[in-house]
Amino acid sequence: MHLNQLIQLRQELHQSPETAGEEGKTASKILQFFSKIEPDEVIENLGGHGLAFIFKGKSAGPRTLFRAELDALPIQEIGNPSYKSKVDGKAHLCGHDGHMTILCGLGEKIAAQKPEKGEVVLLFQPAEETGEGARRILDDPKFQRIKPDFAFALHNLPGFPLHQLVIRKGTFAAGSTGLTISLTGKTAHAAHPDAGINPAKAIMHLIQTLPNLPSYFKNFSLVTIIHAELGSLAFGTSAGKGSLSVTIRAFNQQDLDSLIERAMAEAKGIAKVEKLGIEFSLVESFAVSKNDPNAAEIAEQVMLELGFDIYEKPEPFRWSEDFGLFSQTCPSYLFGLGSGENCPQLHEPTYDFPDELIETGVKLFEGIAKKLNG
């Protein structure tokens, strides 16, 4: 397939976005593409709508995995490309359409020249945006068939020069978790609030204390208040229920886990004083994305050999990536691919993946696969 056909595929994927957990049609398109290039093995319905395509070498060697994401975002696209999203309220505004296309292009290269040793696995992961997909993949018994010795992924990055490679040793991106604290008191008449138990005071206290918890940690961490709810709009009623939602993030996995525990302990203490029932809900949990030194050495050697512009970022990114969970299971490496200094930021309604990056991504991944699998 020529580059212009890959571009056409990317634009077709862009027109038909599906959000986390609903990626069936997208998976079918990818499956259809790979049926033409005949991988040695295909695994379907991996952790949901996930797909894995396996290319086997002639002799024993490492199993190298490359990952792309299937899902789009529940955001209305307001840019106006000729291939604009046809699905109301959903759009590929993070570039997963581009990442998938890069892996399709890589599949063609590997099918044309099979690995000499080991196996190359191309993984299309569902539900990256919600932080659920990687966990579902790893928990699926079928994952044992593709459990890698090395795993690689890239993410396009607006704000960096087109084609520039953004790298980091150690932590590449923060881990994060959404925490909702639900408080239950007792509803009463607004004329007699003393007859009830209103969670307002506890919520106010938590709003003031939780964002200060990172001061107890040496490395970067952050607690962001994202939503608060109290009672209902009934002027004759003193609220008996309320909730507070925060996002907790850190550059170190141990710090992240400790900060979540600390926030929950703080909330339990306040609830006890205020005589409130309390429940916790953890959602959208992303592990810290940590780059392995050996995987980094392999990838960065390829980057140098191919003569790319490389920028080593001094600090990790504060956003999170579901690929982080893979870094807890095998040597992994995540890097950035600049999508232009004037490119709209990820998740903005005018964002669109630059098609010029497809060839760059394919070259890089192909170089890594050759380095490891011949």
Rank of each mutant, 00 (worst) to 15 (best):
A173K: 04
G175Q: 14
G178I: 14
G178N: 15
G178D: 15
L179P: 06
L179H: 05
T180Q: 09
S182A: 03
S182F: 03
S182H: 06
K186Q: 12
K186C: 05
T187D: 00
A188E: 03
H189M: 02
H189V: 01
A191C: 03
A191F: 01
H192Q: 06
H192V: 01
H192P: 00
H192F: 07
D194C: 08
G196T: 01
I197Q: 02
N198R: 02
P199T: 04
K201A: 09
H205R: 15
H205G: 06
L206T: 10
Q208G: 01
Q208S: 03
T209A: 11
L210F: 15
L210G: 10
P211S: 00
N212F: 06
L213I: 15
P214C: 07
P214I: 08
P214M: 10
Y216Q: 14
K218N: 14
K218R: 14
N219A: 11
S221M: 12
L222M: 11
V223P: 13
V223C: 11
I225P: 00
I226M: 03
H227V: 00
H227C: 00
H227G: 00
A228S: 12
A228Q: 10
G231F: 06
L233F: 03
T237R: 06
G240M: 05
G240T: 03
K241I: 09
G242K: 14
G242P: 12
L244H: 09
L244S: 12
S245A: 13
S245M: 10
V246N: 10
T247V: 14
F251E: 02
F251N: 02
Q253R: 12
Q254G: 01
D255A: 08
D257M: 05
D257K: 09
D257E: 14
D257F: 03
S258C: 09
S258G: 09
L259V: 02
I260V: 13
I260L: 14
A263F: 09
A263D: 05
A267W: 15
A271F: 13
A271Y: 13
A271P: 11
E274K: 15
E274A: 15
G277D: 08
I278A: 08
I278H: 04
E279I: 00
E279G: 02
S281V: 07
L282K: 12
L282I: 09
L282W: 07
E284I: 01
S285Y: 07
S285G: 04
S285R: 13
A287D: 14
A287L: 08
A287M: 08
V288D: 04
S289M: 08
K290S: 07
D292F: 10
D292A: 08
P293E: 15
N294M: 13
N294F: 11
A295I: 06
E297W: 10
E297T: 09
I298T: 14
I298F: 10
A299L: 14
A299S: 14
E300A: 06
E300Q: 15
V302L: 10
L304T: 03
E305R: 12
F308P: 00
